[in-house]
Simulated assay, not measured.
Amino acid sequence: MLSYAQEVPPPTLPVLPFNPKNPGIHDPVMAKEGDTYYVYGTGKGIVTMYSKDLKTWTEGKPIFDALPDWVLKALPNFKGDIWAPDIIFYKGQYHIFYACNATPGKPDAAIGHATSPTLNQKSPAYKWTDHGKIVQSVLGRDLWQAIDPNIIVDDAGTPWFIFGSFWDGLKAVKMTDDMMQLKHPEEWHTIARRPTSQKPYNYGLEDSQIEGAFVYRHGDYYYLFASFDMCCRGVNSNYHVVVGRSKSVTGPYVDKAGYDMIDGNGTDFAIGDGVKYAALGHNSVYLIDGKEYFVAHGYSIPDGGASKLIVTELKWDKNGWPYIKLQQ
């Protein structure tokens, strides 16, 4: 079977003028510094926006004016947007991790890392310092893709690097205490994947559709959110978020029925409503000022499939499973 990428090129999603009340974004992550919320997403130099109230947004400048030097050394054919960042405040600095993919849909990709003492672009202290490559995936060598980074610090204070997509799935690896590199690159844990009928190194996209991992601690469990099926087709996308939980960062993550996400399982958590959003995914989750938030992008039906920012409150049922209600 031909992959989707071989059958037809991905559609071009609508790119609309920036709307302060309904901003466009893809793969959003969020942090709050002082009285301001900051959102980062896929785009040239990493897209930024900020808000005081989560309702009205202002477009910021990209994090990078130019590509970090390491990118073209590692990926000479890279010409696209920087993908799917993750942001975390750790030991007095903001750390951002980001992906560059030279051949979209294939593991010709790498993840980098930069830090800044502040997110406020008007502050004299504002400056992102790039620290280079964390990990790279190579065509013909790897059955995972170096995209979609996420960092979780466990109860012992150890940072874990979560990443990957498609084929052999999502990975977890310990980081050094400064988050500058993988601590034990040989100690990899596969935490979720979906079944595939493909031969190794075929790299088709017709099955094994999993990406966008985000691990979040709540109560006694680590919750693994992941996006299943296909993004980036506008109103024809079938992207949706599933969830499982574990007592350990490295799993096993099981869904509500007790089935392991390593076998392609996961409880459906967030799907398109068919009215406002055709599909949604690539989420992140936060506890900020005593309230928990679900952040994602959704393919807007009223806006012809444009990718829009979703921020809504995250709640929990009596059995400790998360749920949301999308605002109409």
Rank of each mutant, 00 (worst) to 15 (best):
T190A: 10
Q136T: 05
I310Q: 02
Y201F: 15
Y98A: 03
E206S: 14
S227T: 14
V138D: 11
T176N: 13
I87C: 09
C231Q: 06
T118V: 12
P28M: 04
W144R: 04
L119Y: 02
L72Q: 14
N319G: 12
G169Q: 13
G244V: 04
D155F: 06
G43F: 07
C232H: 03
A5V: 11
I262V: 14
P252E: 10
A5P: 02
K73Q: 14
K55V: 13
L326T: 07
A110K: 01
T48K: 08
E33K: 01
H282I: 10
D207N: 09
P322G: 03
N19V: 07
G92T: 06
I111F: 07
D178P: 13
G258M: 05
Y4A: 01
V241C: 00
A102L: 07
V254M: 10
K174F: 03
Y286Q: 15
L67Y: 11
I324N: 12
G234F: 02
G251E: 12
V235K: 15
R194P: 00
F161E: 03
I96M: 15
V47C: 03
V235P: 08
E313L: 08
P68Q: 01
H131L: 13
D142M: 08
P124N: 12
F166L: 13
G244W: 04
Q327Y: 11
G43P: 09
P28D: 08
H282K: 03
I134N: 10
P14F: 03
I96Y: 07
S165N: 00
A125M: 14
K276E: 11
Y286L: 15
A279E: 15
P20N: 02
G212L: 13
I271K: 15
Y38D: 08
L280T: 06
T58F: 10
N265E: 15
